[in-house]
Amino acid sequence: MLSDNAKSDIQKLMAQYPDARSAVMPALHLVQRELGWLPDDAIQAIAELVGLSKTEVNGVATFYTMYARAPHGKHTIMFCNDLPCALRGSEKMLEHLEHKLGCPAGHTSADGAITLKEAECLGGCDHAPVMLVDGVEHWHDLTIEKLDEIVERLRNT
């Protein structure tokens, strides 16, 4: 299931720490980057490499919100709706996104293009509202127009 590259990268990660178990979270990040989500057999493979039970690795993969244990859309939007963003209009923008994507937060649009998640504070309150796309792209000072543009772009890529 895991590519040979992924396996050797995980082994390198394990060597970076005094205790190989510390490589679990970076390994989950790495596999999720490669596969898009974390299927059962990937959890099993990581457990075997790091020397833990599948249950322990699954526990970690389900405790932290950035790991996906189910397949999701081609893109993921983590939209911040905490107080500092909400003071600058995020609640209405989230409603707009839900309407535009045709699904509530926590779900994927019918065309499979975008999974919408409500994020907890993304640490960008000086440029609120903010969101994180595909775990890497930070967008800030959002407006309805800007959201529409980004969604269109994501649908077409």
Binding site: Q16, V24, M25, P26, L28, H29, F63, M66, A119, E120
Partner: peptide, 25 residues
Amino acid sequence: TVHRGAGAYICGEETALLESMEGKL
């Protein structure tokens, strides 16, 4: 070594942070 978390406010608490660093909840 830079160690990335994965979404959990609680890990700002120092002992939860250590647990997380060790590959636990």
